[in-house]
Amino acid sequence: MKKDFVLEVHSENGFSVLNRMINIFNRRRVRIKRLLATEMPGDYKNGMASFIVHATEENMERVRLQLEKLIEVERTDVREMNLNHQA
């Protein structure tokens, strides 16, 4: 069963980093429902991308591991989205 997940990806901020992330979702046909990407305040070298995606739990885990594999990615945090907790 597919669910909505909130996924935060903390990474270095380079020109193709966001593209690399999005490619991973596209390749597995995981729908991105929302995307917010930002430089860290006062630190243009680091950034954070927050995704809301619609995926099965299994697919979410595979995607997360592939994101963590990206050279620039420092860590990922995933949580299931629920109504009380809007990301």
């Binding site: 380079g14 020109f15 193709s16 490619n23 390749r27 050279i71």
Partner: peptide, 14 residues
């Protein structure tokens, strides 16, 4: 080439 090679490189840089 950076974007074209994105999915087939471990890393790339311009």
């Amino acid at each position: 080439i950076i974007n074209i090679s994105l999915p087939v490189t471990k890393w790339n840089i311009q």
